[in-house]
Design a protein around this nucleic acid. Structure first.
Length: 277
DNA sequence: AAATGAACCTGTTTGC
DNA sequence: TGCAAACAGGTTCATT
């Protein structure tokens, strides 16, 4: 489900609902998501107070107030269909709700994940830096270190399609199938073109457009295809601004030619033959 | 080394 | 109508 904009929107929505609140109890309905849940997760979380909710790549980081020498961070990836809701504790359990964190104020943080591709671990703040989930990640696309020169460097001598390169978290994090397709349309680049054969001028444009499309999506509350919802349970509206994603055989808004779909590295790629070279 | 495809899981849509 | 195949926002592992 979520790419960077969706995780960012969830993060911003959850933060005011959680920060300063203490965990009363944790209910685990299913102990295996993509991986088995960490041992004693419920016991470890009990009594902790949320200090900060943040995001790195597509991971949500729930940081807790320091109550011992080890500052704990709950790291949570939502896979394809993960959702967080904050509800009253009396709310009935959702279908596919796997974890419910009850807070002292009577609300509950509910994790629901139909396909169970999500995963979670409880780490020390220090351990995050070197954890295998984080050690190899590329820069955040919205941060200043995602520069044109860096992107050009990443593309040098690479034969992999430019779209696959954009979706590679070693290069840059947070860009999934939707935003890779949309950014390549906005920059006029054929998604199948070898990364190493895209000109520096067009890579410069691409870098700017990636930031633009992600910011636009965050502003619209993310993209809801079927099941993405924000912390308040409402959908995001960026799907209304899709110009290629999911528009196979529909006319291009710019040139009128029909949007094509092809499968690239196992993922659907949508593009306009008229606008993308 | 680099690139592709399968696997993980469940639900929905599409086509015969 | 029924059933099977294809497809879905991500990541990792195995295979060319």
């Amino acid at each position: 489900m979520p790419e960077l904009p969706e995780v960012e929107v969830i993060c911003r929505g959850l933060s005011p609902l959680l920060v300063g609140k203490q965990i009363k109890s944790v209910e685990i309905m299913c102990d295996k998501l993509r991986f088995p849940l960490p041992n004693d997760l419920a016991k470890s979380l009990q009594g902790l107070v949320f200090f900060r909710v943040s995001r790195r790549s597509k991971y949500l980081l729930f940081q807790f107030e320091v109550c011992s020498d080890k500052a704990a961070v709950l790291v949570w990836h939502l896979g394809m269909t993960g959702q967080f809701h904050v509800l009253d504790q009396s709310s009935p359990v959702f279908k596919h709700e796997h974890v419910r964190v009850n807070l002292e104020n009577g609300t509950a943080l509910c994790y629901r994940d139909t396909r169970r591709f999500g995963y979670v671990d409880l780490l020390s703040l220090q351990a995050i830096e070197t954890h295998k989930w984080f050690i190899q990640l590329g820069p955040e696309p919205l941060e200043e270190n995602f520069t044109v020169d860096y992107l050009i460097h990443c593309c040098e001598n690479r034969k992999v399609p430019i779209k696959s390169l954009l979706m590679d978290a070693h290069v840059v994090v947070g860009v999934g199938n939707i935003y890779a397709n949309e950014a390549l349309f906005r920059s006029g680049i054929d998604p199948g073109k070898a990364a190493g054969s895209v000109s520096q001028e067009r890579l410069a444009r691409l870098r700017d457009v990636i930031r633009e499309v992600l910011n636009d999506a965050i502003a619209a509350g993310g993209s809801t295809i079927s099941d993405f919802v924000k912390a308040d349970g409402k959908p995001g509206y960026f799907a209304h601004q899709f110009r290629v994603y999911g528009r196979e055989n529909e006319p291009c808004y710019d040139c009128g030619k029909l949007i094509r779909r092809r499968v690239q590295s196992g993922r659907s790629t949508f593009y306009c033959l008229g606008c993308q070279r």
